[in-house]
């Protein structure tokens, strides 16, 4: 599945409800030559760069629960594939310790 999206299509994260238009969905954003994405992603032409080929990956679907999530660290992480944080927590024991430690740390700043 790969689409170049015309204006108007909106990406919305199902976790944090971040919402913004996207310009492409797939693994091979236009004009990027050697670059390939390892997941089917919602992609936006980088609005902060004048170069037309620069892009920002907004998010993708969690490979466990299929929820559409943004790439923000509060919503998902990528470890060989995309996981939304609830799914990571659910299966935390399967993730390497680095990620477990990271997630444990994350809880603290949430409450401040």
């Amino acid at each position: 599945m790969e689409t170049r999206v015309e204006g108007g299509a909106i990406f919305t994260c199902e976790t944090c409800s971040l919402s913004t238009p996207f310009t492409y969905f797939g693994q091979k954003p236009p004009n990027t030559r050697a670059i390939v994405l390892l997941e089917e992603s919602y992609v936006l032409k980088d609005p902060f760069s004048p170069d037309r080929e620069k892009f920002i990956v907004l998010g993708s679907s969690c490979t466990v629960c299929s929820k559409v999530v943004c790439v923000g660290t509060e919503c998902s992480l990528f470890y060989t594939r995309r996981f939304c944080l609830p799914c990571v927590r659910e299966n935390l024991d399967q993730f390497p310790q680095q990620i477990q430690v990271e997630l444990a740390k994350k809880k603290a700043p949430l409450h401040t």
Binding site: L38, N91, D93, P96
Partner: peptide, 27 residues
């Protein structure tokens, strides 16, 4: 460590590598 019984096997690599955190590859 053995994983909790009953949950889904995600088939993640056992050895951590920061490289696995990146969703981009350059060919």
């Amino acid at each position: 460590k053995s994983r909790k019984s009953g949950s889904l096997d995600l088939g993640l690599p056992k050895e951590y590598d920061a490289r696995y955190r990146i969703n981009i590859s350059v060919n």
